[in-house]
């Protein structure tokens, strides 16, 4: 890690990673209490990716994410209240309880999901980028997707279209080495994923996704290139999830020793050590930071608990732009 980062910004990065970690740990706990149901995909271990990659995006840029997107939403500025209430299925949730954990969505934040089909968000992101380009605005669309998505046709069609049309699209591949339970080398003929994007003439780099500063630097360079008119850029973020794929996953496909080795590179632990070494933070500071975040999350849980269920009469609201015609009683 390089040492020239301003203290204020360094603490911001730490804070964002810790917010994700503590939020996700609370989600796991709430899942055990059956407060959160359905699928729940935790981002624990991968925090440096969302926290670092989001730094070079402005509020006018757009984001398309996957079903493992709570962290991205929080860093984007969607309130923990709205995200937690969504997971509770309450009407105060950002998607009014219709989406759940996999469909965190906030058009006001230009955060277009929360998409639960592997690779499915990629063409959407290309369309958002194309719309911005056609309107002559210089916004970037950042699309997060996993290593598994690179095996999907949607990735290849999107990469081709983006390069062909020079779209302002930032392709952020969160390579955590497993497509659900299938290891990268069992799923990809070419495991160097940056080469796949490069085949479409998209400038491509790979970076240590456990190092928040490296993530920030690589994505900032890619963003700058897009804003300078260089067209789409691909950044592979080499990371690892510490938890199972979802709460239903018994995690039998990975050696405990492998998980243990990656945990030694915990992005929050290593960055905290780096900041301590620089004298940016001490035990008291860490304790205060943690308490502040725990308070934010406790507030979010209370908000979700106090939330309302959507009115029964509104079950079919938002299927179409208008309410369906009243049918005959049958």
């Amino acid at each position: 890690m390089s040492g020239d980062i301003p203290r204020e910004h360094a603490l911001h990065l730490l804070r964002e990673m810790l917010r994700i970690r503590l939020f996700e740990e609370k989600c796991a706990e709430l899942y055990g209490e059956e407060k959160i149901r359905g699928f729940l995909h935790l981002y624990i271990g991968e925090e440096a990716v969302a926290a670092g990659a989001m730094q070079s995006l402005t509020k006018d840029d757009a984001i398309v994410a996957t079903y493992r997107e709570h962290g991205h939403a929080l860093v984007r500025g969607i309130s923990a209240n709205a995200v937690m209430a969504e997971m509770y299925g309450k009407v105060e949730g950002c998607s009014r309880g219709r989406g759940g954990s996999m469909h965190i969505f906030s058009a006001a934040h230009r955060f277009y999901g929360g998409n639960a089909i592997v690779g499915g968000g990629l063409p959407l992101a290309a369309g958002i980028a194309l719309a911005d380009k056609l309107r002559g605005v210089s916004h970037v669309t950042a699309c997060f997707f996993g290593d598994g998505a690179v095996a999907e046709g949607a990735f290849h069609e999107t990469a081709n279209l983006a390069a062909l049309w020079k779209l302002p699209l930032l392709l952020l591949c969160e390579n955590n080495l497993y497509a659900m339970g299938t290891a990268l080398e069992r799923a990809q003929s070419e495991t160097d994923l940056a080469r796949k994007a490069a085949a479409y003439r998209i400038p491509s780099t790979s970076v240590d996704g456990m190092d928040v500063l490296a993530v920030e630097a690589a994505t900032r360079a890619a963003c700058d290139a897009i804003r300078a008119g260089a067209g789409p850029q691909f950044v592979e973020l080499r990371t690892y999830r510490f938890r199972a794929h979802s709460m239903f996953d018994p995690d039998r496909y990975r050696d405990k020793s492998e998980v243990g080795r990656w945990k030694e590179r915990d992005p929050i632990m290593t960055f905290t050590a780096f900041l301590r070494g620089r004298g940016d933070i001490d035990d008291a500071g860490l304790d205060a930071l943690r308490k502040e975040i725990e308070s934010e999350i406790a507030t979010a849980v209370a908000f979700a608990e106090a939330g309302q269920w959507e009115a029964v009469s509104d079950l079919t609201k938002f299927v179409y732009s208008e309410r369906p015609l009243a049918g005959r009683a049958s």
């Binding site: 277009y112 959407l124 290309a126 369309g127 279209l161």
Partner: peptide, 26 residues
């Protein structure tokens, strides 16, 4: 060419792109 866009033979890519554009008001 900005309003009559020839695409490659890539139906998923072109429809998804159109959906993304539609979400932004085109």
């Amino acid at each position: 060419g900005k309003r009559v866009i020839d695409t490659p033979i890539a139906e998923a890519g072109m429809v998804g792109t159109a959906v993304g554009m539609a979400m932004l008001g085109l």
